[in-house]
Each structure stands twice: as C-alpha cells, then as structure tokens.
C-alpha cells in the first residue's frame, strides 16, 4: 500500500479510538471534558518510555500506557466531576495544560525536545484490531446496566440519584474508561510517528476530538467514527490552505449547530438535552435577542 494512504488510514483509526472514547464521556454521560488529549499524551509517553527504556513488548507497553491514563482519569475525575457544565470544562482544560507543562519540564520525558527514536511498532493490523476492540467494548458498555446509568446521569442527575445511581462513581468510571482508550490511542500514535513532544497533545488537539464527536453526533457510536474519518480526511484535502484549517473547523461547527445541532448521526427525537447543543442554543438565543 502507498505509504501516504497507509498513514492516513492509521491516523483515521487512532482518531476513531480517540473520538469514540471521548463520545462516552461527552455524548453518553454528558460531561464536557476538554482534556482528552492529555490522557492521550499520558498513554503515549508511558508506553514510549516502556518500550524505549524498559524494552517491553509493544502490547504490554500499550496496556501499561492505557492503565496509567485510566488511573489519572480516575484521580482527576474524582474531584473535578463534582463540578458541572462550564466549570468542569474549565477544570479539564486546566488539567490538560498541567500535563503538557509537566511533560515539558521533566527530564525523563525529554523536556521540550520530547522523545525520539521510539520503535516503530504500530502497523495497520494493530490499529484495526484496537479500533474493533474499542468499538466492541464501548458498545457493550453502552448497552448494559452501566450504560443506562451513564445515560440517566446525562438526562437528569437528580432523578438518576433517586433511582439509586451513585453518580460520582459512574461519572468517574466513565472518565477512567474514556482515559483508558485515549491512552491506547496515544500509545499507537507514539509508536507510529516515533517522535512525540509535549505540544503534540495540546489543547487544540482536545478541541479537534471534540469537533469530531460533535460533527458526527453526540451519543452515537457511528457518529464518532464518521466524525473522526471526515475530520482526518478533509484537512488532508485542504493541504494547500492548511493555515485556514482551524478557521474552517470553526465555520463547520457553527453551520452544524445551526442546521443540525445533533450532529450528522445524532438523535433527532424531541428536544435536545445534550450539554453542548444546549450551550450553543443558549449562545444562539443570546445573539438572536440582540
């Protein structure tokens, strides 16, 4: 296969893992997290150090990276998930910046230079298998007692608690699961590009994953897949105007929120209760009232 197309496919795969794990947190549980790239970086650095310094096999390194990311997800989730809406968004944004700055200043992570010479272990087979495993696991979680509890929290936290759902526990659990798969995405990323540095996983990357989820449709498994695919391919097609990429992202998001706030595949029934579309509706309402 042509190297260029292979790289594109691998990027799409990694982005599908990132977008669908973020979808569990934002789309299904309704917790607006803006720090998903930070969990990716935790997985990337941990697994890269595991293969580079410890010489562990790739599979084990991926798993360790994912577990470390999940542990951070739980530790960060416990205090911050007590916050709601905008406050949670700000807190996760802050967490993402902290992680980036820590990696920038640690010796073991190579500081601003980052880690280079990571063995190239990621290939098409690894990516496709892990995409399938991620999709399978997330799908099973969503269609279970656990998934119903997450949806109930999104719909109405007070009512969920009065149904016997410990919302702090389930929100933290979902944060941990989301971070676990983001860690896997990070591990795959590091062992494909063989070079990572703190700015690979900045705030803008978190926003990119958010865009994929919103574009595809919050709370829809295939939506995240389509969003990840489109937002990986479109920038490639627009290479000549690469500087305008983020501008186009912004415009696409605004148009989406105007004509199809639930995303390409989002549920269209009844009134929208998703966090993000609610924000956009509020903002649009304010603009209209001017």
């Amino acid at each position: 296969m042509n190297v260029y197309y292979l790289q594109l496919l691998i990027l799409i795969g990694i982005n599908i893992i990132m977008a669908s794990s973020l979808n569990l947190v934002i789309g299904y549980t309704g917790q607006l997290s803006l720090g998903h790239a930070a969990f990716m970086s935790l997985g990337a650095y941990t697994s890269a150090l595991a293969t580079l310094r410890l010489g562990l096999p790739f599979g084990a390194a991926l798993l360790i990276g994912a577990v470390v990311a999940a542990l951070f997800g739980i530790v960060i989730g416990l205090p911050t998930l007590q916050l709601k809406g905008d406050y949670l968004a700000i807190a996760t944004l802050g967490f993402g910046e902290i992680v980036r700055i820590v990696f920038l200043n640690l010796d073991i992570t190579g500081g601003a230079v980052g880690l280079r010479g990571i063995p190239k272990e990621t290939d098409f087979l690894w990516v496709i298998c892990l995409v399938l495993i991620t999709g399978f696991a997330l799908n099973r979680i969503i269609h279970s007692r656990v998934g119903r509890a997450l949806l109930a929290i999104r719909e109405d936290e007070t009512a969920a608690e009065s149904m016997g759902i410990n919302s702090t526990y389930y929100k933290t659990l979902c944060f941990g699961v989301g971070a676990f798969f983001a860690g896997i995405g990070g591990g795959l990323f590091a062992h494909w590009f063989r070079y990572i540095h703190p700015n690979t996983f900045g705030f803008l990357n978190s926003i990119e994953y958010l865009c994929m989820v919103v574009l595809g449709g919050l709370g829809n498994m295939w939506g995240a897949v389509i969003g990840a695919g489109l937002l990986t391919i479109i920038p490639e097609l627009l290479r000549q105007i690469a500087d305008l990429r983020l501008l186009i992202y912004g415009i696409v998001l605004i148009i989406m929120m105007r004509v199809r706030p639930q995303g390409i595949l989002g549920q269209s029934q009844g009134k929208s209760t998703h966090t993000l579309s609610r924000y956009y509706k509020q903002i649009l309402g304010k603009i209209k009232n001017r």
């Binding site: 949806l151 719909e155 009512a159 759902i165 549920q267």
Partner: peptide, 14 residues
C-alpha cells in the same frame, strides 16, 4: 423528571 431522550422501557429498567 423522566429521562426524556431514552425509551420508555429503558426508563423503567433504570
């Protein structure tokens, strides 16, 4: 306070 975006059955399953 029903879970309005979920099916009637899922509401009761919760």
């Amino acid at each position: 306070r029903i879970f309005s975006q979920m099916s009637v059955l899922d509401n009761v399953l919760i």
